[in-house]
């Protein structure tokens, strides 16, 4: 039978909670093994970053939704953290198969990678709850993308880099959620990545200095 928008949103929330019920909000044994395989063990940096970003997220959530909602924000961050570690493990397994390496020291010590991945996980959680506001009444609009970029002071260009790999690594994402992440991707490509403070301009400048690489395609007739 056709679902009302609120019923559809409640089902999406339930589905997300079922998927994440068996996930941990701390690194699993498999993930910890990847961390220990690194030239520089990133475990402490990762867990401290999650704690710090969790405080930022909860504070900003409370600012947007009301102070009484801080605990709800904290619960959503916990869900996002579980998704973050789950997707990270899936990504590393995939990279290990693809590259035949086990030492991901550079990647796992890259703050931009972790912040982007956590932001993407939280975007999934926030978008899932958007239909009901979590209270079954109001629709949240203030937490819409790119809100999470501002909360984490994350550059859109870096966030963009994890989207496709995130979708590949998490098979439980619904069609609607994949479309939402695609929408975020398009917003970044078409607008946010071209704002004045974007690192994209410096990268283009560097690329120009390195000289022409591939031949440009001839103009289409």
């Amino acid at each position: 039978p056709p679902q009302t928008p609120v019923r559809a949103a409640m089902n999406s929330i339930q589905q997300l909670r079922v998927v994440l019920a068996s996930a941990s909000d701390a690194p699993s044994e498999v993930l910890s093994a990847y961390f220990k395989n690194c030239t520089v063990d990133p475990t402490q940096e990762i867990t401290q970053r999650v704690r710090r970003l969790g405080e930022h997220f909860s504070q900003r959530f409370a600012q947007a939704m009301g102070q009484r909602c801080m605990e709800i924000g904290s619960q959503r961050f916990t869900l996002g953290t579980r998704l973050y570690y789950r997707v990270m493990e899936s990504m590393l397994k995939s990279e290990e198969r693809r590259l035949s390496v086990q030492n991901f020291s550079k990647l796992l010590n890259d703050s931009a990678f972790h912040t982007s991945l956590l932001a993407c996980a939280l975007e999934v959680v926030t978008a899932t709850y958007r239909g009901t506001g979590g209270f079954g009444v109001a629709v949240e609009t203030d937490l819409s993308f790119p809100w999470i970029l501002d909360v984490f002071q994350l550059v859109a260009y870096d966030f963009y880099k994890v989207i496709e790999s995130f979708i590949k690594a998490e098979p439980s994402l619904s069609r609607d959620m994949i479309k939402h992440l695609e929408h975020c991707e398009h917003l970044v490509m078409e607008s946010i990545a071209w704002r004045g403070d974007s690192p994209l301009f410096e990268l283009l400048h560097q690329a120009r200095e390195e000289g022409p690489g591939e031949q440009a395609e001839p103009p289409a007739t």
Binding site: K106, D158, S165
Partner: peptide
């Protein structure tokens, strides 16, 4: 079924995107 366009080529992944290859 979704119609998301996977743009990464063979041999491209998150390691390359973050200059960690």
């Amino acid at each position: 079924v979704h119609d998301y366009h996977f743009g990464l080529e063979e041999g491209e992944g998150v390691s390359e995107l973050f200059d960690c290859d």
